[in-house]
Amino acid sequence: MIYSTEMLYQAYRSMKLIREFEERMREEYQRGKLPGFIHMYRNQEAIAVGACMHLGDEDYIASTHRGHGHCIAKGCDIEDMLLELACKQDGICKGKGGSMHIADMSKGMLGANAIVGGGPPIAAGAALTARTLGNGRVSMAFIGDGASDQGTVAEALNLASVLQLPMIFMYENNHFAEFTRNPKPDGRIAERAGAYGMPAVTLDGTDFFAVYEAVADAVQRGRQGRGPSAIEAIASRYYGHFEGDAQQYRDSTELESSRITSDPIPKFLADSRCSDLETARIEQIDAEILASLDAGVERALAAADPLPEQLYSDVYVNYRGESA
């Protein structure tokens, strides 16, 4: 596969933006500036970016509770996301969704989801829309290794296979289902998906190029009306289940070494396909990202909270309405 330099810069920028966005959110969370739970995506960035680079705004994704990376990779506005994480009035969901429900229909982002395994049936529905309208769009569900055990995921796999939906099951195996090590060997999740009658591959989710190339095939297959695919991308989880989880249930030596070996960003830059990328341009991208986050965070924290009366809006389009 041929990679243009611009496309590689773009991939780098997206991965780095996710990384820095989350590191900054973590700091703000620790300072008590963000309510609720936040779930860090660190070291899984190559999966969101490698997958979403094949998708346009007209394609769909359904995300997870660990969804910041998916949102950014799918093109959600960073400033609107920052406002939402701070639960402000002008947040991407007006402060009513928070970290675990960021969504933007105009970007085909059908929502992060606080129910583990909640997204795949919804993504299957988006794929059903594409199939019914015959518009060549595809739909992708991000699914953690924990979610892979949910019945909803099995039902979505089966429905997608039976109806030959243009759907990609993008598994992210970070080896931990909340606080418990997933006992399944790597590859078992893809094996299960394959048993539903679709191509299923297992790959290194910290290798941007591996993800990018596998998703290229899966997306093409969907666009051509040849049905669903599954990809199990392995990328060990860096932080705990949620911010504040010290991961005392993990072996500290193994954790420390995996944190380094499974960092997708240096791996990307060290790849021979990135040999033409210039250090000065990379540094410039880094600086731009940090500056945009500084400005965004400052604005988000100073922004207005929702007004009390906003509690009552957006439940229905029109509760007692007549026909549209």
């Binding site: 769909y60 359904a62 229909m105 059908l110 909640g118 795949p120 049936p121 919804i122 993504a123 299957a124 529905g125 988006a126 794929a127 059903l128 829309t129 594409a130 019914t132 739909s139 019945g151 909803t152 039902e155 979505a156 089966n158 429905l159």
Partner: peptide
């Protein structure tokens, strides 16, 4: 679950 969820996803899109 897939019928209801997919109906919801189809309605969203």
């Amino acid at each position: 679950s897939a019928i209801i969820g997919a109906a919801g996803g189809a309605a969203l899109t």
